[in-house]
Amino acid sequence: MKHEMIAKRYVQSLVGVLDSTSLDNTSELFTLLATAFSDDKFIQIMNSNDIATSAKTALILGMVANAQSSDINNLIKLLGENGRLPLIPAIAKELKRQISDIKRVYSGTIYSSSTMDQSSIDGIARDLGNKMGATISLAFAPSATNGVRIVVDGLNVEIDFSKSRLNAQITEHILKAI
């Protein structure tokens, strides 16, 4: 939780300084950097007390050299000076979230036990996006639950249609009507 709060401050500074295109490029770059943090050898290097912080910073600067961005280089140097290089994955995640909020473009997942064709998924995404005032893309994921569940994390939306819940509600409605 603490990492997310600190990462949010860095991202807010980036959002205030960079234009839309630069933000997108920075997000892609930090996403690529974040994947390096899933490699055991890389993590071992970053957590090693035997390797100087300046060498760790130089390693990451070498990874982003192709971007030729003084803003990115300065941010990496700042993270290194403050011992916050391990925040890079949290910064990547927060940067994606902030860009989604700015552009109102979100992605989510449909969980269902039965397969769905892409046109149905796209229709649900379009209708949900119209309701929420955003552009939403949905991906299908098989699930063992007997129903349909839609989750869009960036909007904090979760919709669940299960047969057992629907049957319970119909039964309750019929009993009230009697």
Rank of each mutant, 00 (worst) to 15 (best):
S112G: 02
K8I: 00
L128K: 05
N47L: 03
S20I: 06
A67K: 11
V15Y: 15
N47F: 07
V15K: 14
E81N: 15
V151F: 02
M46A: 03
I178M: 08
A141D: 10
G129R: 08
R126I: 06
V64P: 00
K56V: 05
S114R: 08
A92N: 02
A34R: 02
T31A: 15
V151L: 02
L29Q: 06
K176R: 14
K77V: 11
F42D: 08
I102G: 03
R126E: 15
V151W: 03
V17G: 00
N49S: 14
A7H: 12
M46V: 01
V152F: 08
N74F: 04
S107H: 11
A177D: 10
L87C: 08
I124T: 11
L95S: 03
A58Y: 04
V152G: 12
L85T: 01
S162W: 03
N130H: 06
T145D: 09
A92C: 06
E172P: 00
A139N: 15
M1H: 14
A34G: 04
H3K: 10
I150S: 05
I110T: 08
I76W: 11
S13C: 07
D117W: 09
L138V: 05
N167A: 07
I150D: 07
Q118M: 05
V17P: 00
A141G: 01
L85V: 02
I91H: 06
I60H: 12
I99P: 02
T26F: 15
A139V: 09
I174Q: 05
E81I: 01
S69R: 06
D50R: 14
I159R: 07
K93M: 07
I99N: 12
D50T: 09
R149T: 11
I6A: 11
S164G: 01
L32E: 14
Y10F: 13
K77C: 06
S137D: 13
D117P: 01
L59A: 11
R165S: 12
S69F: 15
K131D: 09
A55V: 04
K77N: 10
E94D: 14
N66P: 00
A90W: 14
V64E: 03
S137R: 11
I51M: 12
A7S: 12
Y10D: 08
F30V: 01
Q12C: 01
D39Y: 07
R9G: 05
L75R: 05
N130C: 00
I76K: 01
L175S: 04
Y106G: 05
V152R: 13
P89R: 05
F161D: 11
I170V: 15
A58M: 02
L32A: 09
A34H: 08
L32N: 15
T53Q: 10
I99E: 06
G108C: 05
R84C: 04
R165Q: 10
G133A: 14
A58K: 11
S20N: 12
L23Y: 10
